[in-house]
Design a protein around this nucleic acid. Structure first.
Lengths: 201, 201
DNA sequence: GTCTATATTCAGATAGAC
DNA sequence: GTCTATCTGAATATAGAC
């Protein structure tokens, strides 16, 4: 997928603009302008706009998910490992606007072909890994369902934070990855039974 | 906000297309065409495209949230009431593509002015109501946080279902409002302590 | 209230020079 | 690899007839 160096510069700018404004709201001209190029040059590197969109998605999503493997490799203790994964994901969603917005956009657009591609090529691995990681920490009938709930909690809290901050019930400390991590870890331990306390302490 | 009858027809079509494809991907031509009108006529009813977008949002969101009040009025038992609210919201998100997609779009766009408007005018009421409804069922330090978690679970599950259905861990019965309601109700009772079992039985 | 006709701007995309 | 120049179509929006 890595075509060279110039394309990567283009992909960086393109993904940033696509994330911020949406695919159809961003023109080839907009991207070219920010890069100090002419639109024509973009067509030298990418077949058409759709090609640029797909390449941008791949560029952003690939190379994020692999961080999961690093965390798994670095932490032996299951609970600590789970906590680090949740911290990583919360922080990613809170702080990486490009990743998170592109993710939300894909969830929204719900283009079936692209969804299937992303599910198979990007999300299946991390999801199964998460099922295993969480299965090492707690006992539950349906680990996959628990993982969906955990991911829901994280994604949901981050998204809803945007509304919540305008509500009178808001507390500023809610909108922080650390708080969210603590909250989600607590939730997991309430939703399922900790496994083999000796190993996880 | 109700301008007459023709505008409502326009708003219905516009909100449908905006929900499906996004504001900038839908042209005045597209909307007019589907209505069997010319674009020019749209400009008779709405000042410009932005006016049509905002009016469409108001048209869809207003009149959805008021259903909450109906539920509260209809059910006395706190637990039953909570369950009906969750069922209503799950079903709304699963089945009303226009409402749900416009909601996701607003959460994504995160336009601060529009967000503040929506928070104050649309979401504050239902949110506070939910805090009260859930507070009647369970005891918890921070009811608002629990409500955010519950809403997160619902929104998250519905969104993630789109990915999940392509994963090998999927089970078809997951993608149903009834299942989600049961799951969320169970989660609430695990996350917080039921209050005064006598009243809620 | 809806149309035709049109002004204007901007989009995606290509050919061909350098 | 990047440009100039340009084609073609489509967008928003308006004026003015019916």
């Amino acid at each position: 997928m890595t075509k060279a160096e110039i394309p990567n510069t283009i992909l960086g700018e393109a993904s940033s603009q696509f994330a911020a404004q949406g695919y159809s709201a961003v023109s080839m001209r907009d991207i070219a302008k920010q890069l100090g190029m002419t639109p024509a040059n973009l067509y030298y590197h990418f077949k058409d706009k759709e090609d640029l969109v797909r390449s941008s998605l791949a560029y952003v999503f690939e190379g994020k998910m692999c961080m999961l493997d690093d965390i798994v490799a670095r932490y032996d203790d299951p609970l600590k490992r789970l906590e680090m994964v949740i911290t990583w994901f919360s922080t990613l969603l809170f702080e990486d606007e490009i990743f998170s917005r592109l993710l939300y956009r894909e969830l929204l657009e719900n283009d079936d072909a692209r969804m299937k591609f992303l599910s198979n090529e990007v999300f299946q691995g991390p999801f199964s890994l998460l099922v295993q990681i969480i299965g090492d920490c707690v006992q539950t009938e349906d680990p996959a369902l628990l993982v969906v709930s955990v991911v829901s909690l994280i994604i949901g809290h981050v998204q809803i934070a945007k509304v919540f901050k305008h509500l009178k019930e808001n507390k500023p400390e809610y909108n922080q990855p650390e708080m969210l991590t603590r909250h989600v870890m607590e939730a997991i331990l309430r939703l399922a039974k900790p496994v083999d306390a000796g190993r996880t302490a």
